[in-house]
Amino acid sequence: MIAPVLDPSVFAELSDTMGEDFARELVTTFLDETPQMLATLTDAAARGDGDGFRRAAHSLKSNAEVFGAGRLADLARGLELGGLPDGSAPLQELQQTVAVTCDALGQLIHE
């Protein structure tokens, strides 16, 4: 079963326990950092740097879990455990999932 892009209850709980302003700031930080994290991941894949690739996938997974971004978390975990991918399809899928996740998170903080 494919996980939902975003579980809004996770962000709601984050706002409750950490404060609304902080939760929004955290999402903004994630949105700012994501392009760099994706670039690190694709660069590592291009260079054949297995460790760097695993670390970048791990970082994306860890952040996705913070915000309840289940689909992105699952994909990133798959890459973390699977090692360097064959072909570009897995990376394209990840980029698309990052894009929809970022859109959903952006909408959430502007609600």
């Binding site: 326990t17 950490m18 404060g19 955290l26 950092e33 670390r55 970082s59 860890s62 952040n63 913070v66």
Partner: peptide, 16 residues
């Protein structure tokens, strides 16, 4: 932690 989101989140948790 090498991840900025995690550092912010952990700092906030610890300070709270």
């Amino acid at each position: 932690d090498d991840n900025k989101v995690n550092r912010l989140l952990m700092s906030r948790s610890v300070e709270l």
